Simulated assay, not measured.
Amino acid sequence: MSSRALTIWLPSLRAGSGADVFTLRLAQSLKKAGHCPVVQWFDRRFELCPSLLKGIQPPARADLVHAGSWQGFAFKRQGLPLVVTEHHCSLHPLLRRSHSTTQALYHRFCVQRWNRLSYRMADSVVAVSNFAAQPLRPMLGERLQVIHNGVDTAHFCPGQRGTSRRFRLLFVGNPSRWKGADLLAPLAARLGGDFEVCCLSGLRSNWPKGLDATGLTFLPRVAPADMPTVYRSVDAVLALTRFETFGYVALESMACGTPVVGFDCAGTAEVCAGADSALLGPVDDLDALAGRIRELSADAELARRLSFNGRRRAEELFSIDRCVGSYLKLYEQLVER
């Protein structure tokens, strides 16, 4: 294994998504480990034609390229190993259920084509969860591996809890149907005045005017470094996504010792792994969801157990050190070929 410092080129589209979070955390941790990550951001509009990025020159003395699957093929360069991370997996059949007709056509005729080009040109493909890896295994075989995303468990950690007369719930994410934002107002109505549903918009957009916001409390945006304080200020975090290859919000909440309540869906379920770490149930079943929330609010011992188990799971399986260590092992194997 190589012990020298590696220069890793990280060309990325600034899409306002979990992939942005991944890139920043990976770069910070690689630098901390003594390596030289070079993050190069490109406008999100290049999603529509990533081929335009083929002429971008790599940084001097780059050892390796690491990019996402939408644009990875455009950054393949002679003599540089290419690692492609699949954050989204447009090939997964469950994703179609969350798409409009226009989105479905765009993914079928554009995104999936770019994904396949990236897979073909990559020296190694990484999926961020076993769920994301499922449709890729038949075509990629040994070139595919799973490396779960990670969180800094020293930063995202339990601390002083907020106090409120009402049971406070937190939704974090881009306000889309895919993320379950359309369910928040109906959920608040079912729960009634003893519960407060707080919303914090994700990286991409503010709350759309056409989406029902009755009974919701909107929190001001905070810097990413301040998110642990937000997680610790509530009693539980809502995970309402209908399709998720990896559940960053659920993981960050668990790391902070805040229970997760939501849907037993895809990557969220993989992060939370059952009733010991979170309360998850059928997708779109609001009556069952409201019942689980009331159960949690009335059972302090259940809340303590979920807090403890969630934190332990985050530390043992999803630390940023574990994630970056796996990537470094892969980088060194490819560079030494």
Rank of each mutant, 00 (worst) to 15 (best):
W114G: 14
E142F: 13
G141R: 06
R77I: 09
R45S: 14
R177Q: 14
P208R: 06
L136Y: 07
E142V: 11
R14L: 03
E252K: 00
K31Y: 13
T229D: 11
H155D: 10
L302I: 04
V260S: 06
G16I: 00
L136S: 11
C36E: 13
V125D: 11
G193Q: 11
V111C: 07
R305T: 07
L328Y: 05
S176T: 15
A213F: 03
V283F: 07
A33R: 14
G55H: 04
D226H: 09
S164R: 08
L296R: 01
R322Q: 05
G72I: 08
D152Y: 11
I320N: 04
T163C: 13
H155E: 15
Q71G: 06
D43R: 11
V237A: 06
L302V: 04
S3E: 06
F75M: 03
D276H: 00
S90Y: 14
G210D: 09
V83P: 15
L94I: 11
E244A: 00
A273F: 00
V249L: 01
S307C: 02
F318D: 00
G18I: 05
D182W: 04
L64C: 05
L24D: 15
V222F: 02
D235H: 13
P158F: 15
F73K: 12
R313L: 03
E86M: 11
H87W: 07
V197M: 11
Y248K: 02
T102M: 14
I8E: 02
Q103A: 14
L169Q: 08
L144Q: 12
G192K: 05
C49F: 08
R137E: 07
R232P: 00
C89A: 15
L144S: 14
S253I: 03
E270C: 02
A132E: 09
L64I: 14
T163L: 14
D299I: 04
A189F: 11
S3N: 08
T268E: 01
F109H: 13
L91V: 12
F109W: 13
A236R: 06
H66D: 07
L238A: 05
R108H: 13
G180S: 13
H66G: 12
W9T: 01
H66E: 07
S176F: 12
W41G: 07
E270Y: 03
C110W: 13
M227S: 02
P186I: 14
R4D: 06
G162R: 13
L53K: 01
F46H: 13
C199H: 00
A236N: 09
A154N: 15
R337N: 12
P220L: 05
W178A: 12
E301D: 10
V38D: 09
R4V: 00
A223E: 14
N130F: 06
R232H: 05
R14G: 02
A188P: 09
L219R: 10
R305I: 00
K54P: 03
L144N: 11
A133N: 09
L10I: 08
D276C: 04
T241M: 08
R161L: 15
E295H: 09
G34E: 12
T214C: 10
R242Y: 11
A223W: 04
F131C: 06
E316A: 06
